[in-house]
Nucleic acid binder design. Sequence first.
DNA 1: CATTGTGAACTCATTCACAGCG
DNA 2: CGCTGTGAATGAGTTCACAATG
Lengths: 213, 213
Amino acid sequence: MEKSKKIPKATIKRLSLYYRQLELLEFDGYRMVSSEKLAWLCQVNPAQVRKDLGYFGEFGIRGVGYDVRDLQREIKTILAVNRSWRMAIAGVGNLGSALLQHQNFPARGFHFVAAFDVDRDKIGMTLPSGLRVRDIRELRQVAEDLEVEIGVITTPPSVAQEVADLFLASHISALLNFSPTQIHVPDCCLVENIDFTIKLDILTYKLKHELDE
Amino acid sequence: MEKSKKIPKATIKRLSLYYRQLELLEFDGYRMVSSEKLAWLCQVNPAQVRKDLGYFGEFGIRGVGYDVRDLQREIKTILAVNRSWRMAIAGVGNLGSALLQHQNFPARGFHFVAAFDVDRDKIGMTLPSGLRVRDIRELRQVAEDLEVEIGVITTPPSVAQEVADLFLASHISALLNFSPTQIHVPDCCLVENIDFTIKLDILTYKLKHELDE
DNA sequence: CATTGTGAACTCATTCACAGCG
DNA sequence: CGCTGTGAATGAGTTCACAATG
């Protein structure tokens, strides 16, 4: 195993990618896979695959490749997705509702254990999942009581920071922010942003500039 | 202006970020902003802000800073978001519906001009926006007739590639893929992926490993 | 002997440090 | 004098190329 150097963030992203391709490979009946094939599926360089895995151990068999199922298990452990996680969501609008109903999350061990909103008409409502929408003012207390680990923000950007602060007060240490604004948190808290508009801006930029060259 | 070197992709991402902070600054009544302040708001290094802008021109006033409104306009032009764009969406499930209703898109000039699904119960349905859901089999023809520029994929991953191929057949050159799978397209087509599960995996990885150091 | 694992080379991106200028 | 603009220095991440090996 490579001496434990700093692991690029991009490596983690790709492990997640590899993992999903391995699931598909297993489903399709493959038992072994080479770095070349896995790389092709994920649209990366084969050396990249080997190096990424090399940060965490030696999982392959020289001259043969990687055992599809074993490698899945290894990556699951590395990413810590071999257990379940407790999430709470703030903002039960269109997007929030969509996430709450998303089959993919529970299937991967990510469970919403609470949902909050400010809207009086939504508070008290029971969601398709059986979860009851609570008043956002209960967030701090409830998130603490239910031992929520990941807070998901799907509010309008104007209140995203406020909501983040509520999550912080409940000692949550990870936030998934869907609002198109930057939220400021202390170093002890992790934040990942999912911002559609940035992706669209990248597309329009490239659409404009690819013609110009 | 810096000689036109290759522009880092990350620079484009940040321009999008800068732009939104500039909107907020204008809203709050600021007329000028320094690279230091803008950098703080976006959580990047001030030199980074100046270098990013430097790729495209000299927009600042030495000793003073940047004119909030002027810089907005410049970035809008660079990102090509100073015009409107025509989008079509495939997959009118929870997520698709949420995107179709999202206020932010039309506000920024991104307009859905068509929506497609395979589900017989959904086809023909009129959405809150007034848009009628069409049969996915019409995609190629309709996308071409309506001159769709950006295709949005919110189908289950199992059919994402098929749908991408339909979009390609209609000569679309940019795709926004929300399904958690890699889609393969020729070089002439741009793809941006928005994958929630990757972001969650990054959080769980870090949650596990931050404790270990 | 095909394919992994990995140091070394390379490419790309960020930050520094200061000259240039309003 | 303060803040921008940018070459040069540093740092991070990717790819190469080949030795190691099941």
